[in-house]
């Protein structure tokens, strides 16, 4: 699971680049980067399971929708996740995923930034050589 933050892409926000040798691994890396922006993952426990099933038509939209679902879970159910298991459907437009985490605990969790939304700026997932890569800019 690999991602790195890109400090000079968006001054007011946070950008990251993720990569993996599989599309599913790429989604897991992006999800973990999202968590890392909102909370210190070391302070999170995996006590709650949440399943996601999405059909978005293509891989780009699928990644956009998956990250948006995780942001929605943070706001609606106060859930932050630290473990992800993603299976991409045939054709790359759908997924089934399981995320493990726990409800926000302001005393125990090392909370960081609240993420508002996934933007379309530079957004995209692509297959380059042996690797899958994505760039994501999040509105803070």
């Amino acid at each position: 699971m690999t991602y790195r933050f890109l400090p000079d892409i968006a001054l007011a926000d946070v950008a990251f680049e993720a990569e993996s040798d599989t599309a599913a691994g790429l989604f897991e890396s992006c999800a973990m980067a999202l968590t890392d922006i909102m909370v210190d993952p070391k302070t999170l426990k995996a006590t709650v399971d949440r399943e996601f099933s999405l059909d978005s038509g293509d891989l780009d939209r699928l990644l956009y929708d998956f990250l948006t679902e995780l942001i929605i879970a943070k706001d609606v159910d106060s859930l932050l996740f630290k473990e992800f298991s993603v299976k991409i459907g045939t054709g790359g437009g759908s997924l089934k995923a399981e995320a493990k985490g726990e409800p926000i605990d302001r005393e125990r969790h090392g909370l960081r930034n609240d993420v508002k939304a996934v933007t379309m700026h530079m957004f995209g997932a692509k297959h380059e050589g042996a690797l899958w890569r994505a760039t994501v800019v999040l509105d803070i």
């Binding site: 939209r61 956009y64 948006t68 942001i71 929605i72 706001d75 939304a117 933007t119």
Partner: peptide, 14 residues
């Protein structure tokens, strides 16, 4: 508008 406005922005960007 907090998450409400953020989600409307995300929905309609698509």
């Amino acid at each position: 508008s907090r998450g409400f406005g953020h989600q409307i922005g995300s929905d309609y960007l698509r």
